[in-house]
Design a protein around this nucleic acid. Structure first.
Lengths: 338, 338
DNA sequence: ATTAACGGTGCAACCGGTTGTACAACCGCG
DNA sequence: CGCGGTTGTACAACCGGTTGCACCGTTAAT
């Protein structure tokens, strides 16, 4: 039982233990070419012996970086948590940054109060870069980040791209995804389409619908478009509403795989067979998609790759790279529900 | 259109603008009693004028604190995200800390790789305290934190309390919650009980079951205990299995409100009425509970308050307080499903 | 009138690293 | 032998704040 509350060893102690100066110790540990192999070995041994780890605060001050990247979440956490696509995306970020010395941390800023706190820490330069996961809200913060010149990556397309020249952007081409889903329906010969989408104010939803329309035109009448939440329960309920209307339809485009799962359940309960009577196409290629019965044909959104991309761009911007915009491409995953 | 990439003003600039020394400027801004009101005003005006915000890195080095508290998540994010109780708890932490100058950040450490990264940043003293949201896994990290003497709060009861003397602990009394739910069943005269719980390896589940058993004894036979996931779909499926067994039961104890929602759906589909034929009791008092039909009787877990408590303990420990253990109490919320 | 007390301020050291530059020791060369 | 050129190291400044202490000018007490 070693006693804790050990005070951390400093570089000076390492230097003393190795019989060199602080500067030499620092260079040795940072593998500077100016230090002899001999000395490096001795310093490394000393560092290991006293369990030296460079103090983040001192290092940050000296090098002008904290090596921490904030992943900014401006939605309520509960909303974030209810959308499983986020977790995939966030994992992508973490995964990529774990190759570097940078640490991603999630920063919640949903309430005004929280946003003010976040703002303060941005002003204090607590983070080297910011990845904004849902830049649709909280634009005051974006304004602050712009003014401060903090490297920032927006995940999602901003209408009118007000910050295009200052911030980088990463997003999946939702319109393309919509086209892919709609094309699949069309190829299958489906003519009377219903769409059960996510929230109407969600930009991705808007874009996907535009994609649907590009392909389907009047085969997807406005009355057949329903906006709802992202969950299977929402899909279930929406499909019940549609069935109650007693309109004819032979295809359902869904805003998420979970919506699709609910839709299929409702269809089955109504005695309709998928895909014999009705074709269903999901969105996201969430793990639930493969487990559906029948397995769900869906549009895969490269979320993890998007995370990688966002992280890499952030790193590049820290090194001084210019802002860029990169678009990730969607992909149709053929399974059995079409 | 002001141009960005402004380099941040330093304390020296403020001092110059106010015609005082750096030290005086610092004290004035920190409201030291040794500075005259006159001077404070002048310095504050100067600071405001040049938009001064103290640099986190310099400040951190000087005061020995980063003013950042890590909320450590050792489960996969997806798991965290699938459990809505977390979001409530996390909000509690954020809420409480937003009153202080501390910033909570979520640190994901599910993979070994991520854990190593986290470990490094702990060793570098990047954070003033750590709140471990799910201390059941990743004990190597706990060991590191103990050795480093980083103030740490564990959220959840650890078997054997191996770190009781070093870390603080906050948890809800799950066993008590189990007793409350079971007592309600008993008072209602229910004799044949079924339990649809969360994952078997979850400590809260174990404790709750113990609470059930304390009250019900043989009214809850082992064969009637089903372990499953936390979602309504899981509850739905579990109840189907139970119904297929054709055993007699008149009460269902559920591990979460969402499980309960699924259970009720399944019961209704089977032609059983809640609460006339079967009583159902949930857990958590999640928002879904009040919206259920019939409205769900459930055990309220004071998640938000638990978050407040964890945050406060962390702050106290940073100031040097001894580790403490605090138990939050459960509460039965009577509604219509019993 | 001298001095102690005190409020207000500045100097300089410090937190823990990194880095520009000076310098000493050594080499080979003319 | 003296020179320029390497190589390896140390000194000291610096990053941007905070803080112990000395010092100044007042005013009150003796």
């Amino acid at each position: 039982m070693t006693q804790p509350v050990r005070t951390a060893p400093t570089l000076a102690e390492v230097a003393a233990a190795a019989g060199v100066s602080r500067s030499t110790a620092s260079r040795a540990l940072n593998d500077s070419p100016r230090i002899s192999e001999e000395t490096k070995k001795r310093v490394r041994a000393a560092a290991k012996k006293v369990n030296f780890v460079p103090n983040a605060r001192g290092r940050a001050l000296a090098v002008g970086r904290t090596e921490i990247i904030a992943v900014l979440v401006t939605e309520p956490l509960s909303e974030l948590f209810s959308d499983p696509t986020y977790s995939e995306f966030l994992s992508g970020i973490t995964e990529e940054l774990s190759e570097s010395s940078y640490l991603p941390v999630i920063l919640q800023a949903s309430s005004t109060h929280e946003r003010n706190r976040a703002r303060e820490h941005f002003e204090r330069r607590s983070f080297d870069a910011v990845i904004d996961v849902s830049p649709y809200k909280g634009s005051e913060l974006l304004e602050v980040l712009r003014e401060l010149g903090v490297p920032t990556v927006l995940c999602g397309q901003l209408e009118g791209h007000p910050y295009r020249d200052v911030f980088s952007t990463v997003y999946s081409d939702d319109e393309e995804g919509g086209r892919f889903a709609a094309l699949a329906m069309k190829d299958r010969g489906r003519k009377d389409i219903v769409a059960v989408l996510g929230p109407q104010d969600n930009p991705a939803v808007v874009d996907r619908l535009r994609g649907y329309r590009t392909v389907l035109g009047e085969d997807l009448p406005g009355a057949n478009v329903i906006y709802t939440g992202w969950n299977s329960g929402d899909g279930y309920q929406a499909m019940h509403q549609i069935l109650a209307r007693e309109i004819a339809f032979d295809g359902v485009l869904c805003g998420s795989d979970r919506i699709a799962a609910g839709v299929i359940t409702a269809l089955n309960e109504a005695g309709l067979s998928v895909p014999a009577d009705v074709s269903v196409v999901g969105f996201d290629d969430h793990e639930i998609a493969a487990r559906c019965v029948p397995a769900l044909t869906t549009v895969r959104q490269p979320l993890r790759e998007e995370g990688h991309m966002a992280a890499n761009i952030a790193l590049d911007m820290i090194k001084g790279a210019e802002p860029t915009t990169s678009v990730m491409h969607m992909q149709l995953v053929q399974r059995d529900s079409l």
